[in-house]
């Protein structure tokens, strides 16, 4: 499968996630254990209209989706990935009007857990907007109440 086909299939996967679609998330690149996703700036995603800065929550979703995509693109992951935990450091406000791009990489993948780190930046790539570190399970967790 060519890189283009791979990217297209991965993009279709992202678009199948309803919340990723309403945010307009766009997959920029994907390779084993890595993913890069863009969140376009939009007025309805602003946290505080006084500043026009994107809400941290939209950046969280970008980071979480990007981390999950990096895990699923890892050769060891043949099932889905579910987030176990994530920590986000907000280092500065994203510049209003600019898209935010996240780049995630799997630092280590075991049979059951993937350790992932991601950086998000706007047009000024030298000064990241946010950092994410998270752990993802390689299998979807049981639904609450589901029999063991």
């Amino acid at each position: 499968m060519s890189d283009d086909q791979y990217l297209r299939i991965a993009q279709q996967f992202i678009e199948a996630l309803p919340h990723a679609r309403v945010l307009g998330l766009r997959l920029l690149s994907v390779s084993p254990g890595h993913a890069e996703i863009e969140l376009p700036w939009a007025a309805h995603l602003v946290g505080d209209p006084a500043t026009g800065v994107l809400h941290g929550g939209a950046v969280s979703t970008l980071m979480d989706t990007c981390g999950g995509a990096a895990v699923m693109a890892h050769p060891a992951a043949n099932a889905g990935a579910a987030t176990l935990d994530l920590r986000i450091d907000y280092m500065r406000a994203a510049t209003p009007g600019q898209a935010v791009r996240a780049r995630a990489e799997c630092l280590r993948v075991t049979r059951s857990v993937a350790f992932v780190r991601a950086t998000a930046s706007d047009d000024d790539v030298e000064r990241p907007v946010a950092l994410m570190q998270g752990a993802f399970t390689l299998h979807a967790p049981r639904l609450a109440g589901e029999a063991t």
Partner: peptide
């Protein structure tokens, strides 16, 4: 809301929505 779904198979809320909700 349907638009807050992250995993359509389970279905489950998007982890990012959950994070955003708690942060808010």
């Amino acid at each position: 809301r349907d638009e807050n779904i992250g995993n359509p198979l389970l279905p489950a809320l998007h982890g990012g929505v959950t994070a955003a909700f708690l942060e808010t």
